[in-house]
Simulated scan of single mutants.
Amino acid sequence: MPVTSRRGLLFGTAAIGAGALLTACTSNEPEAEASTTPRDAADDKPGKRVTIGFAGPQADHGWLNAINVQAKQRAESYSDVTFVPTEGSNDTAVQIGQIDTLINKKVDVLVVLPGDGKALTQAGLKAMRAGIPVINLDRVFATPQAYRCWIGGDNYGMGLNAGRYIGEKLKDKPDAKVVELAGIDNLELTRQRTQGFDDALKTYPNIRKVARQAADFTVESGQAKMAQLLQAQKQFDAIWNHDDDQGVGALRAVDQAGRDGFLMVGGAGAKSAMDHIKADDSVLKATVLYPPSMAASAIDLARALGQSKGISGISEAEIPTQIAVFSAVVDRSNIDTYLPTGFN
């Protein structure tokens, strides 16, 4: 994904969470720039050197790999940032040890995407107590005391927007049926995506969700679970698939079964999904973004913290405590806008 302006990352792809109670100002007019804020608005210029530690899970998934790439590329775009990443791990004990190492190195700011937010909470608390501010990326710690700022995806909004999109497509169809191919059920994010989807469907009394299968965010699980859904449901009108990686397998199952007559909405924004949407060559007609550019924004926030700055576009002298990225729906009507953001 091309490196964009800092304002574009923070306020083009991100919306301030309700807990932050902040309003973004994106005007480029001179009057807007001449704000009476107690900070330097020209925060893209080199400043105090900042060492940013980065700890994330193993990049065994397209989205997670894109997270690592986004963070690294953004850090390298700043001449005043030293980037110290760990080798990603899905083992909680290993990731805690890696964070301990970064704490011992006395990095200025720590960016953490925990494999399990609740399990890594003590590591975040330890860093904060050591005087190292933490940017909690996506999977949230169990307490806000474990981070200075959280930035991540809006999982509820992701499901809500998928449900609204499907609802509008099927609103005039009597007794419409939908199915759901969820992610990993023991993750809170999966439950939030399902809840958002279910809440959206409540406003469409003609639509019923008739089946749900949980997969594991992998191609193989997507194929196996989709095959089960197709076998059990001889007719339905739409499917909400939580993840584009498992969606690759789901589309294979659809092709193998020779099924059509329904639309599929994916999740995350993988390039493979966007290519199908652009070509209009499958049942996949849309995907709901979960943009990995949040990792680049996390580096922006970490640098701002290390340099005691706020962020462009808002009046506050400090960065907010919560930023939730917006889950836009991408279909053929806007695919050209979002296609460059697709990740492998």
Rank of each mutant, 00 (worst) to 15 (best):
W63P: 03
G17F: 00
T121R: 02
F11C: 09
H276R: 14
I67T: 03
I311P: 00
G247K: 01
E180H: 12
T23C: 11
R193G: 00
Q322F: 00
R191N: 11
L113W: 06
N344H: 13
Q228K: 15
G310A: 01
L9P: 07
A324G: 10
A298R: 03
L230N: 07
G124Q: 04
L189P: 04
T23G: 09
Y165R: 05
A146W: 01
V330A: 09
F217Q: 05
K171T: 12
H61G: 00
S79R: 09
A32P: 02
R7T: 07
V219A: 13
H61M: 06
G249F: 00
W63K: 04
G62R: 03
Y204I: 06
A14N: 09
L289I: 09
L187H: 14
E87L: 10
A279G: 08
E318H: 06
V210T: 01
K309Q: 15
I314A: 11
T194S: 15
S297P: 10
A42R: 14
A123H: 13
A232S: 12
Q322G: 01
G247M: 08
R259V: 00
A304H: 05
A75L: 09
G153W: 11
D175V: 08
K225V: 04
Q145N: 12
K209F: 07
D300Y: 01
T143Y: 08
N68T: 04
P57T: 01
A162T: 08
G17P: 06
L187R: 13
G8R: 09
A15K: 14
L9C: 06
D100G: 07
A324K: 14
G17D: 14
A18K: 11
L125D: 01
A232N: 07
